[in-house]
Design a protein around this nucleic acid. Structure first.
Lengths: 347, 347
DNA sequence: TCTAATAAATGGAACGTTCCAATAAATCAA
DNA sequence: TTGATTTATTGGAACGTTCCATTTATTAGA
């Protein structure tokens, strides 16, 4: 226990025999102070067990070094990967990201955002909870704090969004399945209150349209965006009179659920039923059979979001361009050809 | 945009025609102010787009409402579950948890802890990164900020730890495998620089000892605590002259890896090789075959840790009792009997 | 009516920083 | 030597709150 009451800059000044201003300068690494003085001060800092009070500093500086990251579902490994990319660039910029989880709950999100604002964050990176109202960020924008959306966007908002090219990804995946000979296709999981859902489903439908899959042969099953949701989707689809032979899933979690449900029925993904996921989380590659998925370069999107954020802070603006990240289809084992309709496909 | 420069308590006072002290009282929900006045003030708060400055407040109050949660690996769903439990109790107490990831890197951890201290957190819940030195928390303790360890503990530290009964869990799991007729047992994953590892391995060895499994029939393979690590462990073990027929894994991630590696070899977990995990993450139940695992009541531990933290803050102490959480073995499909050594076991 | 007690509202100092303007000390040019 | 310049250091005001001690307004008791 170095000291009872917490030490301040004045205690250091006294200890080192200089003024508080000098200590402040040392703390900020100013080149104005004589090296020997700096050494003396730093020793004093060590001796009194000082911890910097950023709250007090921000009172004057008006520019904090923390940015908030507000995530709708921390249990999805996808977001951990996103966070990794962000942390890389923030660390280099001397910015500390604080993460908070909203658990897909708009009320909780409101509280969390309020807290972060009160804490004086310099900016906010948000993956908004489902059901977020457009007004939720009005006050934050009004306060001049930059916000960027990651992965998800809000319908009517002018807040910049960093997201993968969901439409194109879905087109790629759907074309792949059709080229494999599948003619009765399904889209599994998610629900239409999500912009991402509409984009991905839109790509799916467009590819079906273009390549001549009639509407009657398309099955759309909404559901939770989790393993459990995926399992349910498959059961629903297989109960149909003319079940699909392949499915594009809203995300990898849903795809994993579908594969588990297949195994329960003693069917094999890639042989008896083709499955394609979305996001290409690390696990996709290690699954068995390995999951074909749309890779969105999660960490890269995180980096991009962080960069955009830094630029906004620096230029004191609350506006920025959207950024649509490139996607690619990673073909693995789970998306084999339709057994009843083999077509020659080199891939 | 309500206003250019951010509004303060004085702007509200002017707007509402009261003094700043009155506004402060309203903000704190004091019962001393007349209801009509409170209403008037609250309206003004709304009108000027005020956001509370907690930094300034803490300057006087010395008691913040944020506690920091420092996690070694955010990609492990286990920690998300832990966070869920904590958030439940913190929310009720009006405390906001900020999460930061150290990615198992002690240097990063140092930075993150420093940042949180500077931010003036009221307490810290930490799952320390591997390789954390005992001195890492000296300054924090000296500053009188309560710290509790969750899941992991440090060898020589007197900081209270909330963790499951790792030893007992390993004993339960090992006894289960032996009762199933297995005689050549393995312990997969982890490494001996982790206290948790030593506890779990200790339980494994003790059960082997007690139930008469000679040291020659025990295989211990250290490895990464991930799917990939688990896959490597299985390969190593099966390459032995007399390979084991069952394994207790350091955690579920390792167990999933082992099961994937088995499938690659066309072996089935629970039939050709018994696998038991540790932690019982949500996924264990949904895997195929479903994974037998030691349930540690993750969310419950999170709640407990949060409660201990709150009590420490309240009583201004930096000391508390350790808490060892009860564990139970959840038997599912992955831990079938030894095919070559069937014994009558009702379970 | 006046006084005492209670309720409601207020001014000012303090919290730990930063940063500007000012001072002090050292160096240089003449 | 003197003044000008550069290099180090410093005092004090300001940032947005809280909280204590007061003041002012209201109500009750006589």
């Amino acid at each position: 226990m170095a000291s009872r009451a917490k030490a301040t800059i004045l205690d250091i000044a006294r200890e080192a025999g200089v003024s508080k201003s000098t200590v402040s300068l040392v703390l900020q690494g100013s080149g104005l102070i004589r090296p020997e003085t700096a050494v003396k001060v730093r020793k004093a800092i060590e001796d009194v067990g000082y911890v910097y009070n950023r709250g007090a500093a921000n009172l004057r500086k008006a520019h904090s070094n923390v940015i908030g990251m507000v995530i709708n579902d921390l249990t999805n490994p996808f977001f951990a990967e996103l966070a990794v990319g962000m942390e890389r660039v923030f660390q280099a910029a001397g910015v500390v990201p604080f993460i908070a989880n909203t658990a897909e709950n708009p009320v909780r999100q409101e509280e969390v955002l309020k807290s972060m604002m009160e804490q004086g964050v310099a900016g906010l990176i948000v993956s908004p909870a489902r059901g977020t109202t457009p007004g939720a960020f009005r006050r934050i924008e009004a306060a001049g704090v930059p916000v960027v959306f990651a992965m998800r966007r809000l319908p009517e908002s002018r807040i910049p969004a960093i997201a993968p090219d969901n439409h194109r990804g879905a087109v790629l995946a759907t074309e792949h399945l059709i080229r494999k000979g599948h003619r009765r296709l399904a889209f599994f999981g998610g629900s239409s209150d999500l912009v991402v859902y509409r984009e991905r489903l839109g790509g799916f439908l467009e590819a079906c349209e273009t390549l001549g899959i009639p509407a009657a042969d398309r099955t759309i099953v909404e559901g939770e965006t989790s393993r459990k949701g995926g399992m349910a989707c498959l059961e629903t689809a297989l109960a149909l009179a003319e079940p699909p032979t392949a499915a594009l899933c809203f995300n990898d979690a849903v795809a994993f659920g579908v594969m588990l449900a297949l195994r329960r029925r003693n069917l094999e993904a890639g042989v008896d039923f083709a499955v394609v996921g979305f996001d290409d989380v690390a696990e996709a590659e290690h699954y068995s059979p390995a999951l074909t998925s749309v890779a969105v370069d999660t960490a890269g999107l995180g980096e991009r979001a962080a960069h955009v954020m830094l630029k906004m802070i620096q230029s004191r603006t609350t506006r920025a361009e959207d950024h649509i990240g490139a996607v690619s289809l990673v073909v693995r084992e789970s998306s084999g050809p339709d057994r009843n309709n083999q077509v020659g496909d080199a891939a």
